[in-house]
Nucleic acid binder design. Structure first.
Lengths: 216, 216
DNA sequence: TTAATTTGTTAGAACAGTCTAACTTTTTAA
DNA sequence: TTAAAAAGTTAGACTGTTCTAACAAATTAA
């Protein structure tokens, strides 16, 4: 019913609206790498489909119907990512682009088999929650590496970012999910942290990076 | 580079041209469920892209470039089908529609991992050969159930058809890949065959069906 | 509080991919 | 061998998705 293009709009609106509830045309245009008038005309279309609530100059909000569709797409994306990492043993930094394509596959069976094979997982390889088939998200509170107390040791459980460049950065630093790290020092003036790692090397992360890494 | 639509045209041209070498606009239109003028205009487009050789009223032929692209799409489709059956344990009759979508996924890594996981297979679950990554097909001669001598027992290795209705038909008859069957009788006047099967039941297949089943 | 900037909108064009209607060429059969 | 049928083509229209150019509203800052 929705085209691939529409699905991409819906997904982006959802993720942009997570914090604020409202999304602006300019944000969406930037995120999708599309010009504003294109977004504007798509919003009119999605509004007639009752997927978004949209009033000129007011910003964009997903309707209940739209939210449901967004969660379904996000479910497919995150299941696909986990499947690519766990079953197909691809690297966590390379699965995003593939999942971006797999999420549009129209087949209940395909996804329910993934779900089964992965034993009905709650989180994807980046630590994002996977909505269940009814669109329900099982959240949990998470500790960021930037909140860990000095001297404590913790295990990297997940990361917040789904961007290749971020994941490449971590790989370059030698960090992987499951690694144990000890927080040696936090610089008070910029929040950067120094870690000790199994590789014996000391690793320095900026606050920006550390706050996107979740530990247990 | 090629759109999903173009890929579907290329794949259909390839499969229609297997026997004769040439494909007619009407055939292609019927296969793709599209009207003739649409096919006509797409052929002009594919001709400027040097994917097909096309002269008005003359019929359609894939260029070398087109053949290479077709084999690449077919490779992806057949790898995906085998993956869905072998790794994801979906039924052989339900994988075609999913593979139809997966074949358009653009990711070398995705397909090379499938290839590895399946141990570089030569045939898909319907018995069709899988081109290797250079587009080479390793053929083998196969015995059809309609050629099996009376009284002999053989194992169902594959089927020729990739159509859901055909696969449903076999399932309804209780036949699966890997089943041993004994050819009890062949009717000379219509070529239909009676099989004995592990289920103890006798199964009657028309010639049309039997010749699409390959045995070892 | 007015001017500059940012944000959003409308109008109109373009391309991909499809269609119908009308016409032409080729093939088939009476 | 010519008339009917089948196959192919052209012209023109429509939808989806995008763009640029030009203008309008809202926000920010001088």
């Amino acid at each position: 019913m929705d085209s691939l293009t529409e699905e991409n709009y819906i997904k982006s609106i959802y993720s942009l609206s997570q914090a604020t509830g409202e999304v602006f045309v300019s944000e969406l245009a930037k995120k999708l790498n599309i010009k504003q008038p294109s977004v504007n005309s798509m919003m009119k279309r999605l509004a007639t489909k009752k997927v978004v609530a949209y009033a000129p100059y007011k910003g964009i909000r997903l309707t209940e119907k739209g939210k449901k569709e967004a969660l379904s797409i996000i479910r497919r994306h995150r299941l696909a990512e986990l499947f690519l990492v766990k079953v197909m043993e691809l690297g966590w930094e390379e699965v995003h682009d593939i999942a971006e394509q797999l999420e549009h596959v129209d087949s209940k069976r395909f996804y329910s088999r993934m779900d089964e094979m992965l034993n009905f997982p709650k989180f994807d390889p980046h630590g994002e929650p996977i909505p269940d088939s009814n669109g329900k998200i099982h959240t949990q509170k998470r500790t960021s590496l930037s909140d860990l107390a000095e001297g404590l040791t913790a295990t990297i459980a997940a990361v917040a970012e789904d961007e290749k460049s971020f994941l490449d950065h971590l790989n370059a630093k030698g960090l992987q999910i499951g690694d144990a790290v000890t927080l040696k020092k936090r610089e008070p003036f910029d929040g950067s942290v120094t870690l000790r790692h199994k590789s014996k090397k000391e690793i320095l992360l900026t606050h920006q990076v550390a706050e996107r890494i979740w530990v247990e």
